[in-house]
Design a protein around this nucleic acid. Structure first.
Length: 199
DNA sequence: GTTCTAGAAC
DNA sequence: GTTCTAGAAC
């Protein structure tokens, strides 16, 4: 009797965990963007924070204050918001602290973290947090979608077409190649060594 | 998203 | 034997 009852409670707990597998880590940006110490700049529409695990010397995230989870939730009513996010990113890229640095501005096709976020990242790609092929390809393949293209597509087509999950997987698995020259590295440590030659 | 680590690759 | 990557994480 007692055994039967305790099993039933345990089953219920397991069932509720399965129903809500809320990957707590995927919600981390929501806390970070409310933390005054993390905020680089903000206005009435957006917040800018530094990426917690920067994949280059400079790596920022521009997030809307409006509760938009990701690009799938974006429609043409958001054109001006996305254009504003782009402008704010562009302005920060031209800040005095970024003299002689080149930047990319874009979105991941399939982000892991909740709340729409635009990446502003310097193109050196030199960082101790850059470790895997997936990291590399998420900024150096068409998994990284230029903000200009997103804004244009949304303004003209009214919707954003994103690659399927299967295509994303392929993009992230693409063979390594230097983004600035024809060098084909053997593996990530090899690529990271090579990157310093472009400084 | 990261961390950890088994076993593949060298 | 060491380096590196890929997949589980209850």
């Amino acid at each position: 009797m007692s055994i039967k009852r305790s099993r039933s409670i345990s089953d219920n707990l397991n069932a509720s965990k399965k129903r809500k597998p809320t990957n707590y880590w995927a919600l981390g940006l929501l806390d970070t963007m409310k933390d005054p110490e993390s905020i680089v700049m903000e206005d009435n529409l957006v917040v800018i924070i530094k990426d917690k695990y920067p994949k280059a010397e400079y790596h920022y995230l521009i997030l809307p204050k409006e509760d938009i989870s990701n690009l799938k939730q974006v429609d043409k009513e958001h054109v001006s918001l996305l254009e504003h996010m782009h402008q704010v990113a562009l302005d920060l890229s031209k800040d005095d602290s970024h003299k002689h640095k080149n930047f990319k501005i874009g979105y991941h096709a399939e982000p892991s973290m909740v709340r729409l976020h635009l990446h502003l990242i310097s193109d050196d790609m030199i960082s101790s947090c850059l470790k895997t092929k997936k990291h590399w390809n998420s900024y150096n393949s068409s998994f990284f979608i230029d903000s200009t293209d997103i804004c244009k597509e949304l303004a003209i087509e009214g919707v954003i077409k994103l690659p399927t999950s299967e295509v994303c997987k392929q993009l992230l698995n693409t063979a390594l190649k230097c983004h600035k020259c024809d060098f084909v590295p053997k593996h990530m440590p090899n690529l990271k060594d090579h990157l310093s030659s472009h400084k």
